[in-house]
Amino acid sequence: MSKHFLILLLLGCTSAFAQTKQTTTATGKQLYAQYCLTCHQEDGEGVPNMNPPLTQTSYVLGDKKKLIAWVLKGSGNEKVPIDGNTYSNNMPPQSALKDDEIAKILTYIRSNFGNKASAVSTAEVKAARETVK
């Protein structure tokens, strides 16, 4: 576990260096509050018919690459049904966030609001960002 942790940490650092930006000291919860909460709400339940919940959705619990790509790109202007429901608002792209910020936010989402899914690493965000570009 500690080895794993070290690798994660290392990867996190290198990618932060690669961006020549400092890694954030904010927690996933704080970052979520800053960038996602107004729409998806404090409890991740969203707003009926408008902003989808982040509780037990196939995006949040599913393939991490797809999840990261979604958050980076936002919804665009065409509506995408989420688990059979449509939501009227648009989600702005979050690509201005740094890799480690997105990793922290997604790790927070995937382990809160009743979700129990694995963490998302900075390296995974970095890799997914390459494919989105």
Binding site: G74, G76, N77, N90, P92, P93, S95, A96
Partner: peptide, 13 residues
């Protein structure tokens, strides 16, 4: 308008 403030796609600022 299908938009909050007509931001550029990819740069909501």
């Amino acid at each position: 308008a299908p938009s909050n403030v007509c931001a550029e796609q990819g740069n909501d600022k």
